[in-house]
C-alpha cells in the first residue's frame, strides 16, 4: 500500500491489501487495549484535532480514546462552541486549526465532501469521521474487524444491508469495504431509501427482507431517522418496521451462526426489536469496542508508521528512546 496521507474514503486504502493491513494493525492495538494500562507511546508529540460539525458522542469519544492510547495530544472543536456558527468559512476554520500545529484533523460534517475539502487546504492528515451521506470509513473498518472476529473472514460471506441506504454514509463505506474483501452484499430497502442510481455498485437489491434473511451470514441494520417520514419516504415508522424491521419473528429466520450488526445509535423497536438487539448474535457492543482499536490503527498508519509500516512488538510496548520508563510515567 502506498503511504496513506488521508483517510477520506475506504477507496483510499487501495483495495483488499490496504484494508487487510489496517486489520492486522488493529490486532496489535486490540492487544494493547486489553492491557492494564492500555497506552503506548507511538504518537507521542503528535497532536490530533477533532473538528465536529455534527453531534456524535460515540465517534468523537472513540477517536479521542484512540489518540490518547497512542499518547497523542488531543484538541477538540465543535460547531456549537466555535466561530463556525459565526459564519466563518470551512476553509478559514481548517486553516485556523492547522495554524495551531496539528498533525491530524478528524472531521465530522453533515455535508458530503467536507473532509475532502479540508484535506485540499491543509498539510495535516485528515480522517473522515463521517461526512453527510457519503462515507464513514472507520465505521466500515470496525465493522469488517468485527465480522472477521465473529465469522473468521469476509470472503464468500453474504451480507444484507437493510434500511436507509440512500442517506447512509455507513452503507456507502460498508459496501466498498465488504465487497473489497470478497463478500456479497444485498441492499434491502423500500425504493425510496435506495440511492437513485446504483451504476457501479457491486450489489444486489431487494425489497423483501423475509426472502433475504435465511440466506445471509450478516444482517446489517441501518438507523431509521424519524424525519424520513416528513419527506414522504416511508408512510410511517410502524409500516417501516412491519416491512423492514428485524423483529423477533424475523430474527428466527436467520441461519445458525448469522450475526446482527448496527452502527448505533439504535432505535429499538423501529429497525431492531429490543430483544433482538440483546441476542448473542448481536455484535453491537463488539463494534463499539473494536472501534477504538481500529481508530488507533488508522491514526498510527497516518502519523506514526514512518517507513516501517508494521509496528514491531517493541514499538508498541515501549518507546525505544525511553525504554525504562515506568507505566505510571507513561500514563501521565
Amino acid at each position: 500500500m502506498a503511504p496513506l496521507r488521508h483517510l477520506l474514503s475506504i477507496e483510499d486504502l487501495g483495495g483488499a491489501a490496504g484494508i487487510e493491513e489496517v486489520l492486522r494493525l488493529t490486532d496489535s492495538f486490540v492487544e494493547v487495549s486489553e492491557r492494564a494500562i492500555p497506552r503506548v507511546p507511538a504518537l507521542r508529540g503528535k497532536t490530533v484535532a477533532s473538528l465536529f460539525y455534527e453531534d456524535s458522542t460515540r465517534t468523537r469519544l472513540s477517536f479521542e480514546a484512540a489518540a490518547k492510547r497512542l499518547s497523542a495530544d488531543t484538541m477538540s472543536f465543535s460547531v456549537s462552541s466555535s466561530s463556525v456558527k459565526k459564519g466563518e468559512s470551512l476553509r478559514d476554520t481548517a486553516l485556523t486549526i492547522e495554524a495551531m500545529g496539528v498533525d491530524a484533523i478528524v472531521v465530522r460534517h453533515s455535508s458530503s465532501g467536507a473532509p475532502q475539502r479540508v484535506a485540499s487546504w491543509v498539510g495535516a492528515s485528515v480522517v473522515n469521521a463521517g461526512d453527510g451521506w457519503h462515507e464513514h470509513p472507520t465505521q466500515a473498518l470496525l465493522d469488517l474487524y468485527t465480522i472477521r472476529q465473529r465469522l473468521g473472514g469476509l470472503d464468500g460471506r453474504h451480507i444484507a444491508v437493510v434500511g436507509d441506504v440512500k442517506h447512509s454514509r455507513v452503507a456507502r463505506s460498508d459496501v466498498l469495504a465488504f465487497t473489497a474483501l470478497g463478500a456479497t452484499v444485498t441492499l434491502v430497502a423500500p425504493g425510496t431509501l435506495l440511492p437513485p442510481d446504483l451504476t457501479g455498485w457491486p450489489v444486489e437489491t431487494s425489497h423483501d427482507l423475509d426472502a433475504v434473511l435465511p440466506n445471509v451470514d450478516v444482517v446489517y441494520l441501518l438507523r431509521m431517522q424519524r424525519e424520513r417520514m416528513t419527506e414522504a419516504l416511508v408512510p410511517s415508522l410502524r409500516e417501516y418496521t412491519a416491512r423492514f424491521g428485524l423483529t423477533v419473528r424475523r430474527a428466527g429466520r436467520l441461519a445458525d451462526g448469522a450475526i446482527v450488526m448496527h452502527p448505533g445509535p439504535m432505535n429499538r423497536g423501529v429497525e431492531i426489536a429490543p430483544e433482538v438487539a440483546d441476542l448473542p448474535a448481536s455484535t453491537i457492543v463488539d463494534q463499539v469496542r473494536n472501534g477504538v482499536a481500529v481508530r488507533m490503527a488508522v491514526l498510527y498508519l497516518l502519523l506514526g508508521a514512518g517507513t516501517d509500516r508494521v509496528p514491531t512488538t517493541d514499538a508498541l510496548a515501549l518507546d525505544p528512546e525511553e525504554p525504562l520508563r515506568r507505566p505510571a510515567e507513561v500514563d501521565a
Partner: peptide, 15 residues
C-alpha cells in the same frame, strides 16, 4: 444532477 455520481458521492440530486 441526480444519477450515478450523486448516488456515489452522497449528494442530493435533482433529476
Amino acid at each position: 444532477h441526480e444519477g450515478e455520481w450523486s448516488s456515489r458521492l452522497g449528494i442530493a440530486g435533482q433529476p
